[in-house]
């Protein structure tokens, strides 16, 4: 499952959705709003998505992960809108029989989402200005 959400991400509900009798391992990643980037103090982020294409590309990534790794369940949700420090911007969770597949699939999903899905963040700086980020590549 992959979705874009205008509402706060329901982490507990998503974790519940990973339950499976064969799931001996669950790995979850939360990307949260941080108070700095590249030497500047940040006090919030705004995310925008090309929702139709973002959800299609996100679902493709989940299916790729499902074909590459021995997993039970995969879910990933990305926020759009205005977020405050500490808010969960993206959540990816995987359940699997064993931990290696769970870690690998979760890492694959979040890395590919950051690299490919048409979502953009605008950083709001404490000085009052803001700008869209269009990186050449993203730190991992």
């Amino acid at each position: 499952m992959f979705a874009i959400s205008e509402a706060p991400i329901d982490v507990a509900g998503l974790q519940h959705g990973l339950e499976a009798d064969g799931a001996g391992a669950v790995v979850c990643f939360e990307g949260r709003v941080r108070n700095y980037n590249e030497g500047r103090a940040v006090n919030g982020l705004s995310y925008q998505a090309y929702i139709e294409l973002a959800e299609a590309e996100g679902r493709r990534i989940v299916e790729e992960a499902r074909s590459r790794f021995a997993v039970e369940r995969i879910s990933c949700v990305h926020r759009v809108g205005d977020l405050a420090l500490g808010d969960v911007a993206v959540w990816a969770g995987v359940s699997a029989g064993h931990r290696a597949a769970a870690f690998d699939a979760c890492r694959y999903v979040i890395d590919e989402v950051k690299a490919r899905v048409p979502i953009w963040k605008r950083e709001h700086y404490v000085e009052g200005d803001s700008e869209w980020l269009h990186p050449e590549s993203t730190p991992k």
Partner: peptide
Amino acid sequence: VVFVPPVSGG
């Protein structure tokens, strides 16, 4: 038509 600038999700 959409021209998709470099993405910055996550």
